[in-house]
Write a protein that binds this DNA or RNA. Structure first.
Lengths: 196, 196, 196, 196
DNA sequence: CATGAATGAGAGTTCATTCAT
DNA sequence: GATGAATGAACTCTCATTCAT
């Protein structure tokens, strides 16, 4: 039945995702994916149209989940500071479930977005950006966040720090995503300078 | 004379660097570099042994300059907070002169470092890391920086934010590297939460 | 099944061998081999790792067969003159089955042996040389062969004559390998000067 | 004056000849020749039209000398056995002065002769062949050489042995060309089997 | 579903040759 | 005479993809 088929797809996408994340999309060959899956490269085409459609599926899945999570956060936390905390935490935590996709999105999105097929990447990115900007602007208006900071700049700093963390984050390591999020939030909110 | 030759090399490296930064090293073809330079692909080999030797030269130049700048900072600023400020500022400012190299280093170093020829990348990265860690640890010991933060984590946050900024930084834009550094330092040191 | 695959490999190796023998290894292009096989050059790499691995396989096959044949000769003929006759005959006869490989070995071995991968060529050559030298020395000791001849020199003369014959030998021609061997043995043993 | 120019040409041809002999014509690059001569590859074209014209000149010089030597032999020795001895000796001795050219002729003539420019190679080869065949036939007719041998076959055996010797002959070694010729003549005339 | 032979475009690189300086 | 930058064609090899079996 279709369930087995879906499982196989998911399994293959997992393998492909890991390799894309490790070696880059362009640098990973279809043969490497097939090798890792224990089949021949031609056989992959029974499951996917092309190498592109594999990244496509991987990225769509991740972005859908992320968007949903962000929307939930915004719906549940009217308070800007609580919302910011939740966005940061949710983002860091997604490294556990979607680490490969995050890495791929980080490393390849700019390049892929040039092609029509991946035009949605820019759209989703803009959507996600609006979530952050909304929270930051609201916080600034409410006097919760400092007024002397340029919100778009703050957003970029946060986004970069949060997502690039996949490069060194180890899901099996002792330092969990939650703790990393907590430390980052401390810095982000209070700074690293000791209080007098 | 050699000066002309050096100029031509530098010119070609500039073109190659721009393309490597934009499209990635593996994705950029030698023919594209040659096209951009207005010569044929084979002619590049009059100046460089290989595509690899081009990135090599680009990265070595950048890392040498950066290392020297960091050492100068450490030699001139005994005060941890002043040193941190200077390291951050120097790093952001290097985007103006070495933006392409930074982008290449960010995007390709992990991959390239696997090859013997690029083993030095890991070494230099470790050296640079020691600069930051030294400053942060000294600051923490002196009570200048909060004691409840894990220094290696703080280092990674800073490093990621500083270097990934090349992705959106525009050297011709209205927002200068210095101002970006200043804003980031405000966040990093005092946090984004408004003082009561 | 594997048999078909082996057949195809053998077929392609035959084509490659013929061209390598005719035009030389370096001068023969992969495209020429593919053209002669009626496929595209890239398709050859489905069967072989590289052009080098093609010669490798060709030479290994030939040398294995030749070594085995020489060993059989030495095992079956204790008499030096009979052994010499058999070695010469076996060698000439191998032109019928391994003409291309002989030509390649003659023309390329010295060059190829410089590369590590082909180091075995020198070893096998030395092994084959020992077969001939053993027979010649034994014959000289037994008084069957003239004592005033330098055995290493005699060996080289024989070796050169026997193997360079592939350059003009025509497997389809009226003069068979056996007859050529017989004529050469007459000269080699009795000389061309008429007996008084 | 022209003498200096001629000297330089000869010097460059010597270098080219050595490399062609060692590595093969196709495999030797113009740059290698230039490197060995201490100039840049482009500079070679002040002396020679092309790489081809270098081999051309090398081969022509050698073949002219050899033809003259053979004609002198035939003119001076009416006796077939003396003529044969002289041809063999002259040929072996030419390894001292023309070793590289002999090697090139051996290894490349068949290939080069396909091109119009090198059509003369086949002609000269035929001319040289006639010298040997004439002597052998005359000797057979006179009853000096055995009647049961096919002269064209004997010629090929001699030719191959004589010329392929360049592959192992060492002009600086202890074994001189003259002695090699003597040993070969012993075998060729009397055979290697001890007289009862 | 998978195999494996083949495609066809394009990759990095080499090299004989030219030519302005 | 020599330099050195450039040409242009050809080379080996890679790879996403197709398709008959």
């Amino acid at each position: 039945m279709g369930a087995v088929r879906q499982d196989r797809r998911a399994e293959l996408l997992g393998i492909a995702g890991r390799l894309f994340a490790e070696r880059g999309f362009a640098t990973t060959t279809v043969r490497e994916i097939a090798d890792a899956a224990g089949i021949l490269s031609g056989s992959l085409y029974h499951h996917f149209d092309s190498k592109e459609s594999m990244v496509d599926e991987i990225l769509r899945g991740f972005l859908d989940r992320l968007r949903a999570a962000y929307e939930r956060v915004l719906a549940e936390r009217p308070d800007p500071r609580a919302a910011l905390t939740a966005l940061v935490t949710v983002s860091f935590e997604s490294m556990d479930s979607d680490g490969d996709a995050i890495a791929i999105f980080q490393n390849e999105a700019a390049h892929l977005a040039q092609f029509e097929r991946f035009g949605y990447l820019a759209e989703v990115a803009a959507e996600l950006e609006r979530c952050w900007l909304g929270v930051l602007e609201r916080g600034q208006r409410d006097g919760v966040f400092r007024a002397d900071l340029r919100v778009p700049l703050v957003y970029r700093f946060i986004r970069d720090t949060v997502w690039v963390a996949v490069r060194w984050y180890d899901p099996e390591g002792t330092l969990g995503a939650e703790e990393i999020a907590a430390q980052y939030l401390t810095i982000l909110c209070q700074g690293i300078v000791a209080q007098r």
